[in-house]
Amino acid sequence: MTDMAVETTTSSEPLPRTKTDWLPLLLVPALALLALPFIGSGSTWVTLTVAGLAMGMMIFLMASGLTLVFGLMDIINFGHGVFISLGAYATLIVLGPLAGWGQADSVWLNLGLLFLCIVVAMAVTGVVGAVFERVIVRPVYGSHLKQILVTMGGLIVAEQAIHAIWGASPIPLQLPQTLRGAFVIGDIVMERYRVVAVCIGLVVFIGMQLLLNRTRIGLLIRAGVENPEMVEALGYRIRRLFVSVFVAGSALAGLGGVMWAFYRQTLTAGMGMEVMVLVFIVIIIGGLGSVGGCFVGSILVALVANYVGFLEPKLALISNILVMALVLIWRPQGLFPVARR
């Protein structure tokens, strides 16, 4: 529910506008422009940049839920990776009966299939997230060490459950027909699926920004990140908010899992855990609890990985750590520090 009634104050003076911290936002275009002369070819640069943006969006989709959960609930959820894996495996629920949609030479059927996969994955991971919060996380509120141990345990159990349900062998996954291949514009090559990933990532980011900044729920989440006790003293039931955010965070991980699965085109129970190092790096770079920071951090990490991988492949493995170190030297609390309790 938006609440703009307060805007109609009777103030006669012009009210000052909120200042935006532009510097971290300029990092991404600055980095892209800096890379251009090193790469040399404009078409290669565009290809690498679009690929990096797509990768960044997928990382953002997987990480955004965790940064909210950590920011609001102060929960270090090492089990977040299992929701990525579970979301990926949930695509099989849709792909089984609707395999024909994926083979059809129709953009709408193919996108519809992807959309259904996302909906089912988010529903499954949301429900499992609610159970995970109630059974595993709630008993260890307030104790980081116990959270790490217990959520790691939950991750292992859930991964084994995936093995028990879908088998331990990797499962190949095919992209829907029209999402395979690439758009070729002159010398520029852009994989179709990556373009779709960029669009979905942008939609989710804009949706989250609107939710967090333009709605009372968003205000509550931002206030709860900073001081949950005061939110309660204002009459709000923060426990319900905690559960809702945990469920939303799990569902977002499920969405990220679907996109990641189609990108890798292989399902393994450990695929979520494998990407968690990257997820933790971007939420630390972004500022714990900051969705905007997580977005910028994801793109930054992915672009650097792509550019460095092209220019100096041996350095690609440590590029993420280097980015994190440089950002933390510049801003020890991350790009967009969120006020903490």
């Binding site: 307060v6 206030a223 006790e229 204002l234 009459g235 709000y236 969120v338 006020a339």
Partner: peptide, 21 residues
């Protein structure tokens, strides 16, 4: 215990739990 990350307006909006001020 003001919410430093929120604007003054947002702090007030949030405090008016039953609806717009």
């Amino acid at each position: 215990a003001i919410f430093t990350d929120l604007t003054v307006r947002e702090n007030i909006v949030l405090a008016a739990r039953s609806g717009p001020v």
